[in-house]
């Protein structure tokens, strides 16, 4: 959380270096996932693609969406979305996967 209007007289500098590093990491991960799609690894190719996507989404959430310095309330709200998605997937796939 921001510390309120304390920085009103002396504006803090933008964390440009941090943002640029996050951006460069995101570009690197994008290139890696595109390249990895051509590796002949069989079924785990999709897992690699989704794993890299999860890391990229985590970078955006932590640094660009400020979850890293967010209040516990905000983190819980974001997690609640994933919690319900987990229930949605678990109940549906437990049916679908046992019918194969």
């Amino acid at each position: 959380m921001s510390a309120g209007p304390s920085g009103a007289e002396r504006p803090r500098p933008l964390p440009l270096l941090r943002d640029l590093s996050v951006w460069a990491a995101l570009m690197g991960l994008l290139a890696l996932s595109c390249w990895a799609a051509y590796w002949p690894l069989g079924p785990i190719t999709t897992a690699i693609g989704l794993g890299i996507a999860a890391i990229k989404a985590g970078f955006v959430a932590a640094f660009f969406m400020n979850l890293k310095r967010g209040t516990p309330l905000l983190r819980l709200t974001g997690l609640a979305g994933f919690f319900w998605i987990a229930i949605l997937f678990a109940l549906t796939l437990s049916d679908v996967l046992t019918r194969l």
Partner: peptide, 11 residues
């Protein structure tokens, strides 16, 4: 992105 564009590229 990995669900739409990446499957089926290898081999």
């Amino acid at each position: 992105y990995p669900l739409i564009y990446l499957p089926g590229r290898a081999g």
